[in-house]
Design a binder for these strands. Structure first.
Length: 436
RNA sequence: UCCGCAGUAGCUCAACGGUAGAGCAUUCGGCUGUUAACCGAAGGGUUGUAGGUUCGAAUCCUACCUGCGGAGCCA
């Protein structure tokens, strides 16, 4: 018969006696009155326990509780301007599920800690308000990405994690020895399968984990990350760009609409996110981008890819994301369609997030001409027999098509305004980081 | 793999060739409106590891280990 609620619902239970199961986030003591801060995963609630209003044993037990002890508090909810959340619970009774030992107290104290230490306690760090807010924003981003595609005629067709060969030749792959006759690798993109699926369903997307065995140690890289990849039949580069822009705007709008509190916890400057929706994204060709960079002090030459600093120089000039297209064919994947008007550039596009965040999306139009595809496979020294099914797609009713991939963690880092992608996923996997 | 920076109490840091210290956390005491509460006291250390220089090393030198940042590659 207990009136069990969550802290996020407190405003609807003012004046009621309720029960909230949770954990002791912190406690402040002042003689005969104590203020336990209860955490239940949905928020924080300041509670008040007055010695004179409680049995001696209850008060003493509460007073000596340690941080993160699991407790169930029962009391009356009251509006209270002095409490952080605007509501307060007058404690009437207390059930202790477990008191955390004084000899081995909760390691994450309400003071400063370094990232190295916090990462080693990632399983506990997730309980903090800030980490909680990031993961909740991540959830909203993923949900809105799915909603966007679901509402625009895309069918979810997930692609395999085990693959027989590299989707894109250069990057290193994780090997797996289980399968008979040949080695398997963890996927680094669902794109090739997506193309088959697009010919079967028209518009598709896949959403799943991706693995890159790169020796990268930067704030933008994870070894295991999540990617959403739409692919559309009868679509050209312009359509790919249109969909990418519309989707990003939808996602940013949804986060602004539903996750204001979380953005506040993260101290995110929401005007920066609102600016994203104020007008069309900046459109720039690779040629223009190179000229822009050279004029701003970069040593980039036409023909090479952007360095990390280059993306920062470009994106800091605008308050909206940029669509940079028509990269040199030589630096792009074998399946990227060349511009018919200019063979040396490919119909590829990157979306660069503002404020220096850089690339969050890469994509473009694929080669649909069978002869050209075969030629490119040879030029890239790829074994044609490994791509026989992929070549089939060009033999049986080939059509212009394209799509893109968005890295979820990079999108989360940008929208949350984070320094490093490692905080955007509950248990990040990086080189040298497998635990916890 | 390469180039930088850093490892001192559970945590965040100080001491920079001459007795290892503070704040937080923990314990005890005080306080009926606290907001990373505050005030007083106590316990807590093989200074990342192994060598070397020196009368004496947390401090200087060498190697290694670990972490962080960057490059390449990418979402």
């Amino acid at each position: 018969m207990t009136n069990r609620i969550t802290i996020s619902d407190a405003s609807r239970h003012v004046g009621e006696t309720v029960t909230i199961p949770g954990w002791l986030h912190n406690i402040r003591k002042s003689g005969k009155i104590v203020f336990p801060i209860l955490r239940d995963g949905t928020g924080l609630m300041q509670c008040v326990a007055v010695k004179s209003a409680l049995p001696e044993e209850t008060f003493e037990t509460l007073k000596h509780l340690t941080q993160e002890s699991s407790i169930i508090l029962t009391g009356r909810i009251r509006e209270e301007a002095r409490a952080a959340g605007g509501f307060e619970l007058d404690v009437e009774s207390l059930e202790v599920i477990q008191k955390v030992s004084e000899e081995d107290p909760y390691p994450i104290t309400p003071k400063e800690h370094g990232t190295e230490f916090l990462m080693s306690k990632r399983h506990l760090w997730l309980r903090s308000q800030r980490q909680n807010a990031i993961i909740r924003v991540r959830h909203e981003i993923i949900k809105s990405v799915r909603d966007y595609f679901d509402n625009h005629g895309f069918t979810l067709v997930d692609t395999p994690i085990f693959t027989p060969a590299a989707c894109e030749g250069t990057t290193t792959l994780f090997e797996c020895d289980y399968f008979e006759d040949e080695k398997a690798y963890l996927t680094q993109s669902g794109q090739l399968y997506n193309e088959a699926n697009a010919m079967a369903f028209g518009k598709v997307y896949c959403f799943g984990p991706t693995f890159r065995a790169e020796k990268s140690k930067t704030r933008r890289h994870l070894t295991e990350f999540w990617m959403v990849e739409p692919e559309m039949a009868y679509a050209d580069l312009e359509e790919v760009k249109r969909v990418a822009e519309e989707m990003v705007c939808y996602v940013v709008g949804r986060v602004l609409e539903h996750k204001r509190e979380e953005l506040k916890v993260l101290e995110r400057d929401v005007t920066k996110l609102e600016a994203v929706l104020q007008g069309p994204f900046i459109r720039m060709s690779y040629d223009e981008a190179v000229k822009n960079l050279q004029a701003n002090g970069s040593e980039i030459q036409w023909g090479s890819d952007f360095g990390g600093g280059d993306e920062t120089i470009l994106t800091k000039q605008f308050d909206r994301p940029m669509l940079v297209d028509r990269f040199p064919t030589a630096i792009k994947a074998f399946y990227m369609a060349p511009d018919p008007a200019r063979e040396e550039v490919a119909l590829g596009v990157d979306v660069l997030a503002p404020e220096g965040y850089g690339e969050i999306i890469g994509g473009g139009q694929r080669i649909h001409d069978p002869e050209l595809l075969l030629k490119r496979i040879h030029e890239h020294n790829l074994p044609p027999e490994a791509f026989d099914w992929y070549i089939d797609l060009r033999k049986y009713g080939t059509v212009p098509h394209g799509g893109f991939g968005m890295g979820i963690e990079r999108a989360v880092a940008w929208i949350c305004g984070l320094e490093h992608v490692r905080e955007t996923i509950a248990f990040p996997r990086m080189i040298y980081t497998l635990r916890p």
